[in-house]
Design a protein around this nucleic acid. Structure first.
Lengths: 148, 148
DNA sequence: CTGAATGCAAACCCTTTGCAAGGAA
DNA sequence: TTCCTTGCAAAGGGTTTGCATTCAG
């Protein structure tokens, strides 16, 4: 089942309608790389396609998140962004965020996952979601900084 | 050097003044447990003491963070909170956040720190700050859920 | 037809700032 | 006296909502 079918199923199951705007927002989201905000999507949608309102983009992204195709993440700027997660519900991935150039590098680590398991069971905690974000300077920005 | 002296030093070094309001906010913050928001502090300050404006609480917390006594953290609700960090500048600690009862459990792990180092050097990344938050159900809330 | 969706504008919520009045040094 | 600080109120910046209109089913 592909992403579009997943979303249609979600709409059907909730008794919601499959509209042009929702298709456009979903397709735009699927064509993005990681971590777009509502505002990013709003611009993208309206750059190429017919006009779709900000509120509709916002509400559609909530639906897409509910359907399991995206999840909300928030870095330190207080802006909600959407991370793709279809097909990797169980693949923990985390972020290295460059505070200089705003680049986001994803990483994952089995050692980390094992350690997380250990910590969870130690505290009797059941994980629903998690995030691990490291803020700092990426290789390129460090080099630029050193050249000065 | 205790927290109050650290803060006074910071003020002096920056050519700022040591006012009643700043003392009150600092003392209130020092008397809190973890993760208070500006709003929390505003209420606390004004519950017991003479009136201090919201903006002053906000600006003072920024100063306290600059002085190294607190750091800003943001969970998934978009609200800035302040974590105590005096005396543990280099002790990485992370959070287990119960989505049910809102309790926050801190944890730290050397294995995690080692793995983080490995990841950083692999990507040539220099860390400035980081956060690791696991959202889910704490032991107590899981038990409550199971009893139903 | 009928209830859901859209788009606009306004409401919200928290954070941040401008400014006149007050206060530490 | 000199700036810094305060408190208020208002401005910001993003998210969310109310409502009349439009549209999918």
């Amino acid at each position: 089942m592909n992403e579009i079918e997943v979303f249609k199923d979600h709409l059907r199951a909730a008794g919601l309608k499959d509209t042009v705007q929702r298709k456009v927002v979903l397709n735009t989201f699927l064509n993005t790389e990681k971590h777009v905000s509502v505002d990013d999507l709003y611009r993208l949608v309206n750059r190429a396609k017919r006009h779709v309102g900000y509120a509709t983009v916002h509400r559609t992204m909530k639906l897409i998140a509910e359907s399991g195709l995206a999840r909300e993440v928030m870095f330190n700027d207080g802006v909600v962004r959407f991370d793709h997660c279809y097909g990797r519900e169980h693949k923990h991935h985390h972020h290295l965020v460059c505070t200089q150039c705003k680049k986001v590098i994803e990483f994952s680590s089995q050692a980390l996952d094992r350690e997380e398991q250990r910590i969870l069971s130690k505290h009797g905690f059941e994980s629903v979601s998690h995030r691990y974000e490291i803020f700092g300077l990426c290789r390129e920005c460090r080099q630029k900084a050193n050249r000065k």
